[in-house]
Design a protein around this nucleic acid. Structure first.
Length: 372
DNA sequence: AAAGCGTGGCG
DNA sequence: TCGCCAAGCTT
């Protein structure tokens, strides 16, 4: 029994209008040059919560450095993170490499072409699974991302909160009814392309839309109201003192590897003191207890506000000096300024490198804020 | 189910 | 400046 929402839709007419538009308007993107499942996979992981323009240069560099499943599986995780540096959501990179190792170990290096095995891989959720199956293997599986939910919420006038997990399942069932089984790759990509180019979140270009005549929201002039999405909570601000600690004798700076779990896992940073918990008066003492290093605070170099999706770092950046050169703790390293480029840093800490005269190591970095 | 997890661009 | 948003997954 077909859903009520679909009864008024001319499905094959919709498919034809959509896919015809896609064939004539699709962007020439690097992951559309061939159907290598590995490249499709890499692109889909990079594109999670990330704009196409941001991904393109990363994709080129990543594929050049790790051209095959085997190459990525054999790589050092730090090199993988370095290639991901600046893209964000770094667990994507760690999960991708874990998954690729599994593909080499269990599937002879061939990306599985069935939902069960593919979906069991680290970092491959419902969307990515459907995207790989449809785009690389021409299987009629839904690939429901934010674009698809936006397009379909307008097309079918669906008012469920798209932030809810169960809403995505609802959209998957609609896509299963609507998908073009003769070309699921084009169908899925066309919906996403439409969402990116025409059916945009704000001010959708309905007058240019190839499926305008099928759209129930447009018929009622309600396209701007959809989709419905619950607002995110505001982030909490956490103040830190960041220490750019120089050993004058060896001309090195102290960097620290972050925990292998949680925020920015396994990336490197300049040591940070959660100053609200510690208190200024206990800073040096706490630092010695924590790291075994005595330091002399020098001067404040500036401050940075760094906004994450869920928290905000308020960073006061200081230079400091130390005499301690021993570094048997492997989480800490004393490195020459030139060596900084070999370690993956979060963007916030890349910006601080300008304060110690290091060359900017990133391809995508602006000036740090130095104002008070 | 809801929170944790990055970054850059845009109005 | 600030809130929203982008081809989501994990726990």
């Amino acid at each position: 029994m077909r859903d009520k929402k679909l009864q008024s839709i001319d499905i094959s007419g919709f498919q034809n209008d959509l896919i015809h538009w896609y064939q004539n308007n699709k962007r020439d993107l690097p992951w559309r040059k061939d159907k290598d499942p590995y490249k499709i996979w890499v692109s889909e992981i990079m594109l999670q919560q990330t704009k196409v323009d941001t991904v393109i240069p990363y994709f080129y560099r990543f594929i050049e450095k790790f051209p095959t499943v085997q190459a990525l599986a054999a790589a050092d995780q730090q090199d993988v993170l370095k290639a991901w540096e600046g893209l964000g959501y770094y667990s994507r990179a760690r999960n991708l490499q874990n998954a690729v190792k599994e593909v080499v170990a269990s599937y002879d290096g061939n990306v599985p072409a069935n939902p069960e095995d593919l979906g069991a891989l680290k970092g491959v959720g419902p969307y990515t699974k459907g995207a790989i199956l449809s785009i690389a293997f021409d299987q009629p599986e839904p690939a429901v991302d934010g674009n698809v939910m936006r397009v379909f919420s307008r097309l079918l006038l669906i008012e469920d909160d798209i932030a809810q997990q169960r809403t995505k399942k609802l959209f998957e069932s609609y896509v299963r009814e609507m998908i073009d089984e003769s070309d699921p790759s084009s169908f899925n990509q066309a919906i996403m392309e439409l969402g990116a180019l025409i059916c945009t979140p704000k001010s959708p270009a309905c007058l240019l839309c190839p499926v305008q005549e099928h759209c129930q929201a447009f018929a009622e002039g309600r396209q701007e109201e959809l989709p419905i999405k619950k607002k995110a909570k505001k982030q909490k601000t956490i103040p830190y003192v960041v220490l750019l600690i120089k050993n004058e004798e060896t001309d090195t700076f102290i960097i620290e590897k972050r925990s292998d779990q949680g925020l920015l896992a396994n990336l490197w940073q300049f040591p940070m003191v959660p100053i609200k918990e510690i208190g200024w008066e206990h800073l040096e003492r706490w630092f010695y207890n924590e790291y075994g290093i005595t330091l002399q605070l020098q001067e404040k170099k500036g401050k940075l506000k760094h906004v994450f999706s869920h928290i905000i770092w308020q960073l006061d950046i200081y230079t400091a000096t130390t005499n301690i050169s021993v570094m048997d703790d492997h989480r800490l390293k004393a490195v020459d300024m030139c060596e900084l480029v070999n370690y993956p840093f979060p963007v916030s800490h890349q910006k601080m490198m300008t304060y110690i005269g290091a060359n900017q190591i990133s391809h995508n970095l602006g000036e740090a804020e130095t104002k008070e």
